[in-house]
Amino acid sequence: MRPFFPDGILTFNETLLPFTAALAEELDLPFHSRETTSLAVDKFRQRERLRAAGVDAVRSAVITGPGDVPAALERVGAPAIVKPASGGGSRDVHLVHSVAEAVELVGRLPASPAEPFVVEEYLVGRDLAPFGDYLSVETAVSYGHASHIAITGKGPLVPPFRETAQFWPALLDPDEQTEVLRLTTDIVAALGVRTGMVHTEFKRTATGPRLIEFNGRMGGFMQDMSAHTGGPDLIATAARIALGERVSLPLLDTDRVAFQAWNLAPIAPSRLERVDGAAEVRGQSDVVSYHTYVRPGTDLGGGVMVHRLDLLSGVSAHHERMFTAMDEALSALSFTFAFAHGRSTVTGRQLVDMPENRMAPLTRGGASTPRPPQPR
């Protein structure tokens, strides 16, 4: 690449962060340093660095197999979260309540020295229904200066930890907003972030916001919400930072609410056979767009990773109207799946509660698993 004298480099892909950092270093281009990138993609090292800096005190331990579980649970306590040290989209993220449960779970997960998992303190969120109990902060960093662009509100999680919706702006009181932004600034500094777009998630607990995780790239689908609320062009902002420009942006100030919601593939393996109601949804009030991501006839492997079937985008006058608009749209959609035991047709509103989209009960004191298809 050197003969082409590139002016900048960036990525929006979590898995490409280390490769992009290596190229940036070789080409002397602005990007996260290799150390910062390593801290961003390794959830255990990230916690350790933030603990040493006095920014985050969430207990965590690394495990490479079932034999590591007892010591990890003794350090972290139960209940606890088990998840890959690197990864996204809620891949293999589970809640465990005991050593026996964790040992069985880790025995079925691909934990190894090459792909370690982490056990983390379970953060209990406040009951904020119909809102979710967590949020994220979207930040642009230029020459070490952090500009917080927006605080993203979230919908309730579907077990075990699958996201269902998000919106701009989050609804929170001024004191909580101030604390969330202060913590984000401290996290950015502690991890050595000097340049680029970052995404930081917090659980809204009874004792204040607590860090869930930090990501060294822009949050998913944020460009769309920024455009619908009069915010900056985030793709252009990321490119300007990559080109070495100094960027400073104000926190979003808007008189409307942009939202996104999506339907999740079932936990049990299936085949998507039909999607009905798309035309009706696209004509509904407050809906800006509706895109399907999975064609009918596609086999779905199941599992607990966030696998979006579609994406609904809209704009409402306020948060209450937003929930009404999402409910109207999700109720108008219907999905037909073929499972091993037969076919099921449900609306988008019913999909999260269908038996094939729930975690199975604990078995012999062990981990929750996807409910398997039943033979005919």
Rank of each mutant, 00 (worst) to 15 (best):
A170L: 07
P160R: 01
P159T: 07
S147M: 03
V180N: 02
H148W: 07
E176K: 14
T139A: 12
E176F: 13
I187C: 07
T195W: 09
R162P: 09
V158C: 11
I149L: 14
P156I: 07
G192C: 01
G132A: 08
D186C: 14
L183Q: 13
M197L: 13
Y143I: 13
I151H: 03
P159R: 03
I187L: 02
V188T: 08
G155A: 04
I151A: 06
T200C: 08
M197A: 12
A165L: 08
K154C: 10
T164H: 05
L171C: 14
A170W: 04
R162W: 05
F167D: 01
T185S: 11
E163R: 12
H199C: 06
G132R: 05
V141A: 08
H148M: 13
A189N: 09
P160N: 00
V137G: 05
T200H: 07
R162Y: 06
R162E: 08
V193H: 02
S136D: 09
G192S: 01
I187H: 06
T139Q: 07
I151E: 00
F161N: 06
Q177T: 10
P160V: 05
S142E: 00
L191Y: 04
T139F: 08
D186F: 09
L181F: 05
E163D: 09
R162T: 11
T200A: 06
A189Y: 07
F161K: 03
V141C: 06
A190G: 04
V198F: 04
G153I: 04
Y134G: 10
A140Y: 11
P174T: 03
V188L: 02
F131G: 10
